[in-house]
Amino acid sequence: MSLWEYANPAKFMALSARILPYLAIASSCLLLAGLFWGFFLTPADYKQGSTVKIIFLHVPAALMAINAWLMMLVTSLVWLIRRHHVSALAAKAAAPIGITMTLIAIATGAIWGKPMWGTYWAWDPRLTSFMILLVFYFGYLALWEAIEDKDTAADLTSILCIVGSIFALLSRYAVNFWSQGLHQGASLSLDKEQHVDNTFYLPLLVCIVGMVLLFLTLVLIRTRTEIRSRRLIALRLRGI
């Protein structure tokens, strides 16, 4: 029994149908509990007031924005190397979720940034990196849409995802040279997390786990949809 067996569409459909309900319930419970705990049961920060509580949405979304891309990178590699169809479709399924997470991260960041730095947007390295990530997501999805043959599209988007990852990483570090001296020490959310004490840290952890499960739930649902649409194509070709 190997993990690869679940790369077979039929097996994947059967397994995912069984675990989806639990996953959906677990993710919604954890997210609701975590957000409620974070928003209403934690004290307001003495310096930032209650605005700081947006981290309970901001940090998990930002983490998932990056992790969704990482997942696409892994599944793309699996497709190129082992030709498992589910893998390619999972990568396609993850992209719009990744875009949503990136947008949530940018929006909540802007809302938080206004009271903290007095601006919605600054060309800070970290903000810029997220904007770049967003553009990479757009290019990736646009390529999926532009190609008619699904397997060719899977090949091309996979190689784009791999090359894109390298250049996204390069951009992440090039940004540091580029904005040198402009926004020195403007590092925010992620460093902050390390200083947060337990009253904030625990609900944040619950939110992060909830967001990971939510992501998994959505990816599974979307992958199932993709598999069904491929089945339709296959049936039509067969002429049933």
Binding site: N8, H85, R231, R238
Partner: peptide, 10 residues
Amino acid sequence: DEDDPFLKGS
């Protein structure tokens, strides 16, 4: 002969 991976075993 048909071996579409999406129909196999479905």
